[in-house]
């Protein structure tokens, strides 16, 4: 079971949250200018790593805010929680 430290509400049980999948996906600035393949990559292609995954979660049954989580997909250990507007923390760096 995962315990998540919501940046606004503190540590809560996994059941209160919804995982929104990989974070830091950049929407093409001008969608009309990209190829079908590039658009499909933006829509569908995901990193899906075995290990550290940067993903976004919503505190659905709480403050309803989205935030980022760096989590190990094998051990389910959470290495960092940071806000949507924060930069991706370096793997293994301070606080990660």
């Amino acid at each position: 079971m995962i315990r998540i430290e919501c940046p606004w509400c503190g540590p809560r049980s996994e059941a209160e949250f919804t995982c929104g999948g990989q974070s830091h996906i950049v929407r093409p600035a001008d969608p009309a200018a990209v190829s079908d393949r590039e658009w499909a990559q933006y829509l569908y292609q995901r990193d899906n790593p075995k290990g550290l995954h940067y993903e976004r979660w919503r505190h659905t049954f709480g403050c309803r805010q989205w935030f980022n989580v760096a989590r190990d997909t094998v051990t389910h250990e959470i290495r960092a929680v940071y806000r949507m507007t924060d930069l991706k923390p370096a793997p293994g760096g301070e606080g990660v």
């Binding site: 079971m1 995962i2 049980s13 996994e14 059941a15 919804t18 995982c19 999948g21 990989q22 899906n48 075995k50 995954h53 993903e55 989590r71 997909t73 094998v74 051990t75 389910h76």
Partner: peptide
């Protein structure tokens, strides 16, 4: 389980 996972266990919830 509702999040990406490679843990071949399954979680309690």
């Amino acid at each position: 389980d509702t999040h990406p996972s490679y843990g071949q266990r399954g979680n309690l919830p």
